[in-house]
Amino acid sequence: MLTAEGLTLHFGVIPALVDVAIEVAEGEVVAIVGESGSGKTTLLRVLSGLMAPDAGSVRWLGADVHAMGEAARRRLMRTDWGFVHQNPRDGLRLNVSAGGNVGERLMAVGARHYGNIRAQAIEWLARVEVDATRIDDLPRTFSGGMQQRLQIARTLVTNPRLVFMDEPTGGLDVSVQARLLDLIRTLSRELGLSVLIVTHDIAAARLLADRILVMRRGRVVEQGLTDRVLDDPQHPYTQLLVSSVLAA
């Protein structure tokens, strides 16, 4: 569904992406791992159309994402795609109630019946395990983990086909991380979602991903079946990455 080739991007003299190719198929969960500064977040931004590459192409169902124009790209972001930010405050509207945050995405794709919108919002709050009595509260009164689950509900309510996730468990307590990972895993399977997830958490990648790409200094140094890359890493950098993890 999503295909990118030859992606190259420089920040001044620093190569952020060097000839990166990636493909995400329907229903597939793909993880991009690597340490800070490896270019993984930049790659996610280029793939989702938020940032233009110096060279290379990104195609969604055959259409060139960077050639389609701002309006079409925004429409894609509201319909087929979803984006879960590392910081939930970047994906939520903090001065709008929890129910409003979820309902707003529905209204953006044309839903108008208030009762239906509220019913769907309640249903999605339940799916992400947010107490329905909090529907009229502002997200700023929520804990970090609850905000992240609310962001996921807001993203998934419109039934996207591909969800980009940038370190969705970063900055959360370990116990909350496990709950969130389980939620992402369950939802992606139940809904047949494609997910492209950027993480530096190897254990999370193992739990969620069918395939994994290892990035270093803007390049994909190794990729393949998740458990094979993690259990039988070939590239020196992947071996270092895997051996540096505490019992993943």
Partner: peptide, 9 residues
């Protein structure tokens, strides 16, 4: 065994 399962390349 791990090779047979594809866990090792």
């Amino acid at each position: 065994m791990r090779c047979l399962y594809g866990n090792y390349g």
